[in-house]
Write a protein that binds this DNA or RNA. Sequence first.
DNA 1: TTGAAAGCGCTAACAA
DNA 2: TTGTTAGCGCTTTCAA
Lengths: 341, 341
Amino acid sequence: MTKTIDRPKITKMSDLALIAGVSKSTVSRALAGNELVNKETRDRIAALAREHNYRINTKARNFRTKQSLTIGLMVPSSQSKWQINDPFFLELLGSIAIALNERGHELLLSSAKLSAEHGIDELVSQSHCDGLIFIGQADIHQQLNDLASFNHAMVVWGGKLDDQKYVTVGGDNFKGGYEATKHLLSLGRQRVALLGDNTTVEGSMRFAGYRLALEEAGIAFDELLCIRPEAVKNGGMKAVQKCYDSGIRFDALFAFSDILAMAVIRALTPRGVSIPDDVAVVGYDDIALAGYYLPPITSIRQDRELGGQLLVEKLLALLDGEQVASSLLETTLVVRQSSVK
Amino acid sequence: MTKTIDRPKITKMSDLALIAGVSKSTVSRALAGNELVNKETRDRIAALAREHNYRINTKARNFRTKQSLTIGLMVPSSQSKWQINDPFFLELLGSIAIALNERGHELLLSSAKLSAEHGIDELVSQSHCDGLIFIGQADIHQQLNDLASFNHAMVVWGGKLDDQKYVTVGGDNFKGGYEATKHLLSLGRQRVALLGDNTTVEGSMRFAGYRLALEEAGIAFDELLCIRPEAVKNGGMKAVQKCYDSGIRFDALFAFSDILAMAVIRALTPRGVSIPDDVAVVGYDDIALAGYYLPPITSIRQDRELGGQLLVEKLLALLDGEQVASSLLETTLVVRQSSVK
DNA sequence: TTGAAAGCGCTAACAA
DNA sequence: TTGTTAGCGCTTTCAA
């Protein structure tokens, strides 16, 4: 009786070692590119591995080396669901994924909501990743600080705060707010309204920029022109409608996001207000669709490619035990037809 | 000399076992909620774990159990970069993340491009996940089939094909195309143009629906009215402009995505064409921004919440060794002002 | 330059 | 109901 000898399936290092006629350790070293192993032997083992379709077991490897080459991404949200309704975040996400991948890491998406019982630290220790990227500080600055002091490798997309213990990468919100407003004023507009939440970290800085620009132009700040989006669906549009219908008039508006800028346009157009003739509008973030709108939206651009790259670089540096500083990214004004015909 | 006895840091199960006065195995069972262990003991150990801030080592656990509770998500792209420029995919991504999380799984984002040297199977074996979700079949149907026959747990968002060996969840593209066209015809429009790539799996089915609707209305198909977006930035807009400027006229247009519908509107509006008076436009996907556009865009809605949920359920069932069938999701027409005043 | 051996922290078969 | 024991597949000292 002849046994059918089909090539045995190579699933572990020891199998490959057997075939190669060397020890497990040598295979391990060879596959890791360790120079201790003869270049010749190394190549031979690599070839053998390829030939037998052997792939190192990452789970065993990660377990043994106590690292995963995986980075977790969290989008803090006080809401119950994973709410990346902000296209900007999504675009940033893409650039982070690319940057990580180029460096041989994987990206783990955490849809986890933060709550009292399930704090961040629980998430962190549960998640199978070496480091963390947070997109947005929202209202969890304190929690982030706590986490950072626990010595977790983490970076945050957002603004820099005085007492902050974590590393951030973020656009210059102050400058962005300043430039948006200045642009509107330079068009000769006198009554520049504001639409956005100025209680968040980012919002308050944009607000400060807005105020400075007004001040420099010698225009008094008018609380009535500060519109807060309501916390409901189409909240931005409703707030603007309410404001306008109450008789308040303005000839320009700076919105804290492109989505809000679109809301303004949708609110005012049906009321016979022409954009930009009657009201010039500037948004923020310059999301892809900003240029697709009608009229195309003037916006403050934040470089998400660079942002994602920096977040990743800093985090990996942190993991290597290096000292890392926060970065403030340049913003640029992209002029389109929502402000200038 | 007195030794300072600070509470030892509990990092492994055996430590906790020592404290609890039981064996490692019992702790393991207790923490896993195994009913074999006395409810009393179980609770005691759980309390102890919490008290000592012990968290099970997931890497060791995953290694041992040969599973990771992690699902990989891939967006096939022939491009060199991770191109989720399609907002619909991003919204689907969100619902997948939520569905996975509710079931205790994590989501690994693969930004990997597919190429000749680095095929899918390599990606799969490299990645640390139990199963895979593909968003879109694009042009890799054959590769997906190969992969599926290799017995990989995988589900695909997309259309169902005859020779397909993998499980899909997707909208009814045929019906979607049919309804979009029928809607336009029901408005009394006679010359319904089409904007989209009808060579993809999804596109060809929408195209078939379009043709059927025309046929039923007794309107001859006109090749000239089929506009293909160019493979460049703003390709949709350019293609429509070129078509229009060459003198071709139509009174309605069905676009294969909302983004394309926006492109149509941007292309025609400056030429004095009124939407929807002169040309009624229908898009596809009903992305969040479709309702935000000016005019708001009539669109074929695909239920992404349900889609994400089904993808996840099917994949987990597959992992449990169950037999799973593909799903065709209902589409609904959402009428807005781009087609009806 | 290579091999032998120990062990990462956990689970699960088997025994008690 | 609990404990004992034997690994999972890999990396890494240490010794040769």
